[in-house]
């Protein structure tokens, strides 16, 4: 069971993983410190966005700018990618081999790529109609918040590629396993932040 002898929040590997399990506690704790400081950055970008509601300076607002269909597909891609990363985590925890882990990582990477493609298409359309970050305080806040999340997704995708290479080169040694654990936390974290973005920015703007 996942619940017993937890050493850190997040999926624990279990005692049969030896060193990767025994030394992981401080490493993962440090990563949580990073994620929580990242959370505060996002939180303050949300606060800025909230205070800029209505500061459109005569420019377009949420109703003119957002396409709920695109926001919905982005949300679905990211949510499914959280599940597929769970597949990679479980394949690692239950010793199903490097091939299975890599397969799930590739699927997760593809879903992340789909998400980014839709998001960039939306940004391009907005900028194409003159609604870039320079247009109004509202749009500055929007382009401070949402692309910051997209940047994190890009970083996560680069990290996935790095880990696929590391699995091939080093095999499933303890260091690689604990890195995969942290990448899993990071990827789930991105989906957690996205809940705030689709609720506040897209649904809140269009409701």
């Amino acid at each position: 069971m996942i619940r017993q002898t937890m050493r850190h929040p997040g999926l624990n590997l279990g005692r049969d993983h030896g060193q990767a399990h025994d030394h992981v506690e401080t490493i993962v704790f440090g990563f949580w410190v990073f994620m929580m400081s990242d959370l505060i950055i996002f939180g303050l970008m949300f606060a800025t966005y909230a205070t800029m509601q209505g500061s459109t300076a005569g420019g377009p607002g949420p109703v003119e700018l957002f396409d709920i269909k695109s926001a919905f597909f982005q949300t679905m891609l990211l949510l499914v990618s959280s599940l597929t990363f769970g597949g990679a985590s479980l394949a690692m925890r239950h010793h199903m081999g490097a091939g299975r882990i890599t397969l799930w990582l590739v699927v997760t990477f593809a879903l992340g790529g789909g998400f980014l493609a839709l998001e960039l298409r939306d940004f391009a359309a907005m900028i194409g109609q003159g609604a870039g970050p320079w247009r109004s305080g509202y749009l500055s806040a929007f382009f401070g918040l949402v692309p910051l999340h997209g940047l994190h997704v890009s970083a996560g995708m680069i990290w996935i590629v790095v880990m696929i290479v590391q699995i091939r080169v080093f095999g499933l040694v303890p260091a690689v396993k604990t890195r995969l654990l942290r990448l899993a936390l990071f990827w789930h974290f991105l989906d957690l932040i996205w809940i705030g973005i689709f609720s506040v920015v897209y649904l809140g703007g269009l409701a």
Binding site: M6, R7, G10, L11, N12, D191
Partner: peptide, 25 residues
């Protein structure tokens, strides 16, 4: 939904021996 993600994807709940992480969060 945030709570669901924390519970099922991050595997965090309130009954734990290790409390430092929860306190950090």
């Amino acid at each position: 939904q945030g709570i669901v993600h924390l519970r099922y994807f991050f595997h965090i709940d309130l009954s734990r021996q290790k409390r430092e992480d929860l306190q950090l969060i």
